[in-house]
Amino acid sequence: MKRVALAFLAVGSSAIAAPPPPPLPNVAPVAQRYLRALKDRDIKTYGGLLADDFVGDDPEQSELRVRSSWLDETAREFQHPRYDVTPERVFYGSHDVNGRFTQQLVIVERVVNFSFGLVSSPDCCSWHRIETLTLEGEKIAKIERSPLYDTELSQTGFRTDIPESGQPHY
């Protein structure tokens, strides 16, 4: 009986350690075009990736944005000569949402010269934000942005901008 249990555990533990399946074939091209459009500030390519019924959710805005208003705001940002977005990490996942298979990309970005609610021109600062892109086929159906984060912590949780910070700084 013990041998059967041990054999079951050995087989079960190797199955748990198996990597997730690779992304579906349409994910990599969409991700690559999106990241390139961000980096190059290419509004035409960026807009071509958004679905007709696209919805954007940004905590800096009071309401959800439809495709046209999201593109207008993004175009204004892209036109600023010092605005820059650098994707630092890209994650892929998929899950069942209300009985429907959904593919998502999560992108961690460093944003420089970001304007707050488009009230002032972007002329300072560096931030991190996270964008979650929900894909439908080869189009982006939704982008959900996180709030902006400006203090970078090390992997141990301490600030990276204070030399010899053996203690947390709040």
Rank of each mutant, 00 (worst) to 15 (best):
S154D: 13
S146H: 07
C125A: 11
D84N: 12
E60M: 13
E131M: 01
E144L: 12
N98K: 12
Q32I: 03
Y149F: 15
D161T: 04
E63N: 01
E73K: 01
Q155P: 04
E138G: 14
N113Q: 05
S62N: 08
F116S: 07
T45V: 15
L148A: 10
R100E: 14
H95D: 15
V55S: 03
E77T: 03
R110N: 08
P25Q: 06
Y46N: 03
F116Q: 07
L133V: 04
G157Q: 06
A37D: 10
G47E: 05
D123E: 07
D53H: 06
L24H: 11
Q79I: 01
R100D: 12
G137Q: 12
F116R: 13
L118E: 03
A15E: 03
S126K: 04
V108W: 12
S14T: 12
E131L: 01
S68Q: 01
P59V: 06
D42S: 06
V108Y: 09
Y92G: 03
P19F: 03
K39P: 00
A18N: 00
V55M: 10
V27T: 08
T74Q: 06
D96Q: 13
P25T: 09
R41L: 01
A37P: 06
P87F: 05
P25D: 11
H128R: 15
A31V: 01
A18Y: 01
